[in-house]
Amino acid sequence: MPMRYAHIDVVHQEVPGEISLCFSITGCPLRCMGCHSPHTWKAGSGKLLTAPHYQKLLQQYQGFASCILFMGGEWHPETLINYLKEARQLGYATCLYTGENSVAPMILQQLTYVKLGPWIPNLGGLNNTKTNQQFIEVSTGKKLNHLFIAHDKIKHRTSQ
């Protein structure tokens, strides 16, 4: 089944230090309880993300966006890998947000960053120090969750 998307947005918070062109891919098989995007669950929904359309967007946003972000899509590994390679060839950083705890090595090789871990409501997201999720810089393996925590929370936590 071809890759489809619910929407494409320019986002500023999902990848710290980057302006990201974000593709919300449909057909997510994970269905995490409390998911903020249940509209992406249905396979076959959304618009087709064709190679020509994707390439046009990469060209259009070059020099403005610095990162290409896929919210899901790992269930289309060949297409995702090809799209990530194209983005990297044009100088974009790349990122995948997944609810899985790991990503196939072939996908990981094409990523600058990866967000791993399912949404667990009582643990919160990347902006919560108790989260199970991890935001990782792939080349170094460095966990960068601290970039999502407000400075006042860090001060409060370290002063106790």
Rank of each mutant, 00 (worst) to 15 (best):
W75E: 02
Y83D: 09
G91H: 06
L90H: 13
K85M: 11
G73N: 13
E74Q: 07
E74C: 04
K85G: 05
L96C: 10
E100S: 02
Q89L: 08
E78M: 14
Y83N: 02
N82T: 12
L90M: 14
T98H: 00
R88M: 07
G73T: 13
W75A: 06
I81E: 05
Y83G: 01
F70R: 11
N101R: 11
T79Q: 13
P77Y: 14
C95D: 10
T79C: 05
E86K: 01
L90K: 15
N82R: 09
N101A: 09
Y92H: 13
K85L: 08
Y83M: 06
A87S: 05
L96P: 04
L80R: 13
L90I: 09
L80C: 03
T94K: 10
Y83K: 10
T98W: 03
N101K: 15
M71G: 08
A87W: 04
G73I: 08
E86T: 11
H76T: 01
K85D: 15
G73A: 13
F70P: 06
I81D: 06
G99L: 01
K85C: 12
K85A: 08
K85E: 15
P77S: 07
L69K: 15
T94W: 15
L69H: 14
A87M: 05
W75M: 08
C95F: 11
G73P: 15
L90P: 02
N82F: 04
Q89E: 12
E100K: 00
Y97W: 14
E78D: 09
G72S: 01
R88T: 08
L90Y: 00
Y92V: 07
T79D: 09
E78W: 09
W75G: 12
F70G: 05
E100C: 02
H76C: 05
Y92Q: 11
S102H: 06
T98K: 03
N82Q: 04
S102V: 00
Y83Q: 03
I81R: 03
S102P: 13
C95N: 12
L96G: 11
F70A: 06
T79M: 06
E86N: 13
G72D: 02
E100Y: 02
L90D: 00
G99I: 00
G99F: 01
N101V: 11
P77R: 13
N82K: 07
T98P: 01
E86S: 13
T94Q: 10
Y97P: 01
R88P: 00
L80W: 10
L84R: 02
G73C: 14
A93I: 02
G99K: 08
E86A: 15
L84M: 06
M71F: 10
P77K: 09
A93N: 02
F70N: 01
T79S: 11
N82C: 12
I81L: 04
G91F: 08
C95Q: 08
K85W: 15
H76N: 04
I81Q: 08
R88S: 12
C95E: 03
W75R: 10
Y92C: 04
N101H: 12
M71N: 04
M71I: 11
F70H: 09
N101D: 12
Y92T: 10
M71T: 03
E78H: 13
E78K: 15
I81N: 02
K85I: 12
G72E: 01
A87D: 03
L90G: 06
I81Y: 04
G91P: 07
Y97D: 13
A87F: 09
